[in-house]
Design a protein around this nucleic acid. Structure first.
Lengths: 134, 134
DNA sequence: TATTGACCTTCCTCTGACTGGAACCTCCAT
DNA sequence: ATGGAGGTTCCAGTCAGAGGAAGGTCAATA
């Protein structure tokens, strides 16, 4: 298989696949003409990577996950620990975004959104900061 | 005020303040010794930027918000539109993260997390992808 | 006066995970 | 012979700074 076929079947852009080879996540063979020559196991790895990335794992996490996947003697606790750590990060991000959302949506609700300049959004952003006491 | 004072009072790192000058968000004067010389209005702008960034607005959004803030004849609808656009992006990100969270937390729940290699997380990541039909 | 240490300056590189583009090569069909 | 669709490498850019090196400045102290 050439890279185009693998891109189609894995759903990953060819650029991304080349990048994954660059950073050592996959090691496809080469044909005599220099083209990358993918076999089913390469495709399988790429699909694995694609799904792990879709779950928000970093590339380094993916590297670890692949290593665990290929290690027949792994302990599932190692996988679970990695996933839980990642889950905690996701939870944190959601909380951050939710806080932004809440603040912003309240400001948006308060803003008339008409042709006048008065705007609670700008007012909030420009709140006076505490001065140093004289 | 030197940059250290402004950093303390605005809560922004000095590096960030220099960067904001670099990209033209602020234009502090210089003292004879070459030091940046900040006045209250610079501090006010930095606080504005800090809050806008804390709400997740991009730097370019911040640039626009500052321009609107300084434009006495702005229409609040312009501010509101920008905020609503940003709010929609936040909402989208939350949904994406929530989907990851849901999937991942289910997988984590299903994983025994012991010394055995069997792991539903890895199983899910390595699901066979559909083959091209023969 | 010399020196210390805190503070300031610019400049350069690095981050993550790609994406876009240029310049060039290869294959297959016409 | 040519055209177009694929493939290749390499370089630069993204975003919003962070980290660090090399050096200048200032105020206080010995």
């Amino acid at each position: 298989m050439n890279i185009g076929d693998v891109a189609t079947r894995s759903g990953l852009p060819a650029k991304t696949i080349r990048y994954y080879e660059d950073i050592g996540l996959i090691k496809p063979r080469r044909s005599d003409n220099g083209y990358r020559c993918f076999v089913e196991s390469d495709l399988h790895k790429l699909a694995f990577l694609g799904r792990a990335r879709a779950l928000g794992f970093t590339i380094e996490d993916c590297r670890t996950l692949m290593a665990l996947y290929e290690d027949e003697s792994r302990a599932s606790s190692d996988v679970k620990a990695l996933a839980e750590e990642h889950l905690a990060k996701i939870t944190g991000k959601i909380a951050d975004l939710q806080a932004m959302h809440d603040t912003l949506s309240e400001l948006v609700t308060c803003c008339a959104g008409d042709e006048r300049p008065d705007c609670p959004i700008l007012q909030d952003l420009s709140r006076q900061i505490s001065r140093t006491p004289d």
